[in-house]
Design a protein around this nucleic acid. Structure first.
Lengths: 133, 133
DNA sequence: GCTACAAACGATATTCAGTATCAATAACCG
DNA sequence: CGGTTATTGATACTGAATATCGTTTGTAGC
């Protein structure tokens, strides 16, 4: 919540409402979902606020193969995502191994690596139990 | 080109035209680019054919952070992409290290890993030379 | 080569996510 | 409290992608 002040933005009611919703979500959510839960807030503001939080690093965007992009709280600053291919739930993980790998890879790549993104497609434990949910 | 027959699709003129264009491109290209080079082919067909080739595994889709998705020939069956953050060019690379990493990671992930996707954001050699192109 | 039938086509309308515009509103600072 | 200015919401718009549908065109069988 302090993010708004830190960046010099105003702590308006719509923004607070959106941030409160996000805090409960944790998991991957779409812009539309937020809009549905806050009918009082205009579409434009939803997207504006999401963009604002993206820039502030509070949430991160995840472009999936199909459908609208999902967002999730970036509870840790650098991390990667797991996406369950069956239920679509999104998780976060962090692995030092990945970062180490990047450094190793830099010799094979024609240019300077400035960032990376890793997505793991999984069948989550919940879905493993229910063959077709 | 044999892809079409292999999957039971018809080898129509528009499809052949599209495939020919793709064969020259190699790099990341958008659906719109293809459309521009083939004004005779309807928009719908461009997208239909792209989807078809995606399913057949001939090309792969790359959802970037902004703008339309890019596609590229999957000249090797499993690979990852480099995206130059300055000029937007897309490259492919393959590294056994990545695959090895996945196996190592599987213990830390709550579920079964069924696939993965890695994108490297780089400043390519060409752009490193020209500070602001 | 000709015919028939289904697959595929192109033009158009439509959906959907996201953005621009702009007058009205509400935070913040004094 | 009042003025300034960021922010809002309604609406219109854009741009990518899809659905519809009458027409065209591969292809298999003759």
């Amino acid at each position: 919540m302090a993010v708004l002040e830190d960046e010099g933005y105003r702590a308006t009611a719509p923004r607070r409402a959106i941030i409160n919703i996000l805090a409960e979500k944790q998991e991957g959510f779409t812009a539309e979902e937020i809009g549905n839960e806050l009918p009082a807030v205009g579409r434009a503001t939803i997207f504006r606020t999401i963009k604002l939080l993206l820039k502030a690093g509070v949430i991160c965007r995840l472009n999936l193969m199909d459908g609208a992009p999902k967002y999730s709280l970036s509870s840790v600053e650098h991390h990667h995502h797991t996406v369950c291919v069956r239920c679509g739930n999104v998780g976060e993980f962090r692995a030092a191994t990945v970062e180490r790998l990047m450094r190793g890879l830099s010799d094979d790549i024609p240019g300077n690596i400035v960032g990376h993104r890793l997505e793991l497609y999984i069948v989550c434990d919940r879905c493993t139990g229910n063959p077709d949910d």
